[in-house]
Simulated assay, not measured.
Amino acid sequence: MRLSRSEQVTGRVFLILLVLVTLLPFVSMLSAALQPRGTVPTGLTWPSDPQWGNFADAFTVANMGALLKSSGLIVAGVVPVAVVIATMAGFGLGHLKIPGARFVFVFFLLGLTMPFEAVITPLYYQIQDFGLLNTRWAIILPLIGLFMPFGVFWMRTHFINVPAELSEAARVDGSSTWQLFWRIHLPLARPAIASLTILLFLWTWNQFLLAIVLVDDGTKRTMAGALGAFQGQWGTDQVLLCAGSLLILTPTLIVFLVFQRQFIKALLQGSVKG
């Protein structure tokens, strides 16, 4: 069905307006971050003498080097483990005929309805009993578990759409279950795995609640979690606060811009057509 010219124009205008609305807060923060220190930014005005040094000051004051290292360690501890477990569980629930698989899947679906805020109090006491408070493990271990409902649902959606004839042909050739998973299904699941990896990276990097509740040391938090402490210490300096906020947001923006094509491709090719 071919769209009329008026519909095409309306769609493009809507997309342009949506982009402008999305970019406006970032442009406003950038203009505020470039104002002279000690001033109060008013409105969306570009300074006559942009103070680019404010970003260097914010990087030093917020100890961004330590935060980048901490966030990298947390991402490295969460994302690979969560992706591996979710992929194997999704394969088992979506393609293998496991007794009780439907019940287990419904249990995971219930996990999708539970927000992090609902489990933060019991999680705090459990992490305290383990002696892991104020460590990066207090963020890594809960996130792996909390990401499982979505991760398993995502990967099961892929595996359940893989034609059963592929597995039957591999079984005839003498493939074991592990060989079936490793040699046949895992290569086909690369788009789904790639998109899940990107999502978990962004969610882990931007994790705020667990970081501020379970970790007191700002250098052991995620970048987003450190923003709370940074805001409390420099909340009166709006210029420095905007500069620090933009620095904290920059890594996720870079990842999205670099991998947006792969992410969109993964969404479109996440299933195998029979």
Rank of each mutant, 00 (worst) to 15 (best):
L180M: 15
T113K: 09
P142T: 00
T197L: 10
T204K: 07
E168G: 09
T87Y: 01
H158L: 09
A138P: 02
T87I: 02
F103D: 09
Y124N: 00
Y124I: 00
I198S: 08
A164N: 09
A211T: 07
E165M: 06
P191G: 06
E165S: 14
L166Y: 01
L209Q: 14
L186K: 01
M148W: 03
I74W: 13
F201C: 12
L180V: 04
R171H: 13
W154K: 11
V78F: 11
F107G: 07
A86K: 02
V162W: 05
E117T: 14
R190N: 08
G131E: 06
V172C: 03
A86C: 14
L133Q: 05
T121A: 14
I120D: 12
H185V: 00
T87Q: 04
S167I: 07
L146R: 08
A138S: 13
F116D: 12
A118K: 07
A194V: 11
A101P: 00
M148Y: 03
L110V: 14
T121I: 15
D129R: 13
P187D: 01
G77I: 04
W203K: 01
L109A: 11
L123Y: 07
F105W: 03
I85D: 05
F181K: 01
V84I: 15
K97C: 03
F201D: 04
L196F: 00
L123C: 01
I98D: 07
I127K: 05
H185Y: 15
P163S: 12
F153Y: 13
M114R: 06
G77K: 01
A89Y: 00
G90A: 08
A169Q: 10
M155V: 04
F91E: 01
T204Q: 05
F153L: 04
L143P: 02
V119F: 09
L196G: 10
F153A: 08
I127E: 10
T177H: 03
K97S: 15
I127L: 13
G94I: 00
D173V: 04
F150L: 04
L96D: 02
T135N: 11
A211C: 12
L146E: 05
P115L: 07
I160Y: 13
R190V: 12
A164E: 12
T157Q: 13
E165A: 13
L132D: 09
L96R: 03
I120T: 01
W154E: 10
F108L: 02
S175N: 14
F208V: 01
A211I: 08
V75G: 08
A82Y: 09
G131V: 03
F201V: 09
P149F: 12
I160S: 13
L188R: 04
F116R: 09
L209P: 10
L143N: 11
I198T: 08
A189E: 03
K97R: 15
I139S: 04
V172D: 05
L143Y: 00
Y124L: 01
L199M: 14
N161V: 02
H185T: 00
L166R: 03
L200Q: 14
R183K: 10
S175V: 06
L146C: 02
F130Y: 12
F181R: 01
T204R: 07
